[in-house]
Amino acid sequence: MRLLPWTGADGKACYLSTDDPGSLLSRLADDIEAAQLSSAEQVLAGARSVLHDPKAGERAVRFALTRTVESLGDVLRIAISRGGDNR
């Protein structure tokens, strides 16, 4: 069972049961994970920039933290999926 990088409409985890890593849904999940990891790298760079800017206001810091939390959630889901820890 593979934990997919998205949730269902009810917010619950979605899983894929297949022996074919080349299936359409498996490839879609791979592509989304790659996009999420790339986005996380960009978010991290942006958050670091905000944190290093002494003139950054509360609004900028809150925005950076909000995006960072979202990205961390995505990255943890990928790590759990790849590690097989499907809690």
Results as ranks from 00 to 15, higher is better:
Arg2Asn: 12
Leu3Ser: 05
Leu4His: 03
Leu4Pro: 00
Leu4Cys: 06
Pro5Val: 00
Pro5Ser: 01
Gly8Leu: 05
Ala9His: 11
Asp10Gly: 01
Asp10Met: 00
Gly11Pro: 05
Lys12Glu: 13
Lys12Tyr: 04
Lys12Gln: 14
Ala13Gly: 03
Cys14Tyr: 01
Cys14Ala: 05
Cys14Arg: 08
Tyr15Lys: 07
Tyr15Ala: 04
Tyr15Pro: 09
Leu16Phe: 00
Leu16Gly: 03
Ser17Met: 08
Asp19Met: 04
Asp20Gln: 02
Gly22Asn: 10
Gly22Cys: 03
Leu25Gly: 08
Ser26Lys: 12
Leu28Ile: 15
Leu28Asp: 15
Asp30Thr: 09
Asp31His: 14
Ile32Asp: 08
Leu37Pro: 08
Ser39Val: 08
Gln42Arg: 11
Gln42Tyr: 06
Leu44Glu: 14
Gly46His: 07
Gly46Gln: 09
Ala47Lys: 13
Ser49Cys: 09
Leu51Gly: 09
Leu51Trp: 12
His52Gln: 15
Asp53His: 02
Asp53Arg: 07
Pro54His: 05
Pro54Gly: 07
Pro54Tyr: 02
Lys55Thr: 15
Ala56Lys: 14
Gly57Cys: 00
Gly57Val: 05
Glu58Ile: 05
Ala60Arg: 07
Arg62Tyr: 00
Phe63Val: 11
Leu65Ser: 13
Arg67Asn: 13
Thr68Ser: 15
Ser71Glu: 10
Val75Thr: 10
Leu76Ala: 06
Leu76Asp: 10
Leu76Cys: 09
Leu76Val: 11
Arg77His: 02
Ile78Phe: 01
Ile80Lys: 13
Ile80Val: 15
Ile80Pro: 13
Ile80Leu: 09
Ser81Trp: 00
Ser81Met: 05
Arg82Asn: 04
Gly83Met: 03
Gly83Thr: 12
